[in-house]
């Protein structure tokens, strides 16, 4: 069933429809464990649709339909007998705009634990601290865990969202344009963090920023009009793209 033994996630013959519109066409992609995979492409090319499939967030869109398989450690997570709630615990997601809950910093992180029926207070507290440290936010917030999370800056909020994700204990992290609303300094911090996190997690990031893809990713996939045009080592994609359209896009001639 798998060509690569070390594929953490694998998309096989994915077709995706919004009503009658076919948004993804026969996508095959295998994502290696402990790497960063960047997904690039112009707006509307299906890259966000694709990444949302990987933890079944696509189900929130009424009238959408998917064909094909997405394997996580060899198990098909699109199988209707598998609970989306379990999938999302293993595959976390950070969104384009920071979306902390209007609760305290502490409650934001502990939320993912308590909804998964963790009741042990000491364990929760330890997890909160650990997650904030992993997300490189601990030093900035350790004295104000009881503050409303909405008072943090945009960049801090996004790292809080990453910490919130980590607390649940996922294996794969999906980033959907995580820096789209952040300034360059905050962006730099998030990128640094991703490089640190890939030691323990498998990361997939959608980005509009070519330099960002080149800086943080090991593998890059280029989407165009619902098709995966080219998929390979980031270095190859950016220095010697095989496809004319890929080359045109990364050199900024369209998109």
């Amino acid at each position: 069933m798998h060509e690569k033994m070390n594929a953490k996630m694998e998309a096989r013959e994915i077709n995706f429809y919004y009503g009658a519109v076919r948004a993804l066409k026969n996508i095959n992609m295998s994502i290696t464990g402990n790497t960063v995979t960047a997904i690039i492409g112009p707006s509307g090319c299906g890259k966000s649709t694709f990444i949302r499939l990987l933890n079944r967030m696509h189900e929130l869109v009424a009238g959408s339909r998917v064909e094909g398989h997405v394997y996580l450690d060899g198990k098909d997570i699109l199988d209707p007998t598998i609970d989306a709630v379990d999938v999302r615990r293993s595959v976390g997601m950070v969104f384009q705009k920071p979306n902390p809950f209007p609760k305290t910093i502490f409650e934001n992180i502990s939320y993912g634990l308590t909804v998964n029926n963790v009741r042990d207070k000491d364990y929760i507290e330890a997890k909160v601290v650990e997650s904030l440290k992993k997300a490189a936010l601990w030093d900035e917030v350790k004295d104000r865990l009881k503050d409303n999370a909405l008072r943090l800056s945009g960049g801090q909020q996004q790292r809080l969202c990453i910490a919130r994700c980590l607390a649940v204990g996922p294996e794969v992290l999906l980033f959907d344009e995580p820096c789209a609303s952040l300034d360059p300094i905050s962006t730099g911090k998030i990128e640094e963090l991703m490089l640190e996190l890939k030691k323990n997690y498998t990361i997939v990031i959608v980005t509009h920023n070519m330099q960002q893809a080149a800086r943080v990713s090991d593998t890059t996939g280029f989407f165009l009009m619902g098709e995966l045009i080219e998929f390979g080592k980031t270095q190859d994609i950016f220095t010697a793209p095989k496809n004319k359209q890929t080359e045109a896009y990364i050199t900024g001639r369209f998109g």
Partner: peptide, 23 residues
């Protein structure tokens, strides 16, 4: 209530009902 809060909650492995009740 922003859709983004519902998405955040669901993406953390909360059920639909937990999301409604707590967020």
């Amino acid at each position: 209530v922003p859709q983004s809060l519902r998405e955040a909650s669901l993406a953390l492995g909360a059920t639909h009902w937990q999301t409604i009740k707590r967020i």
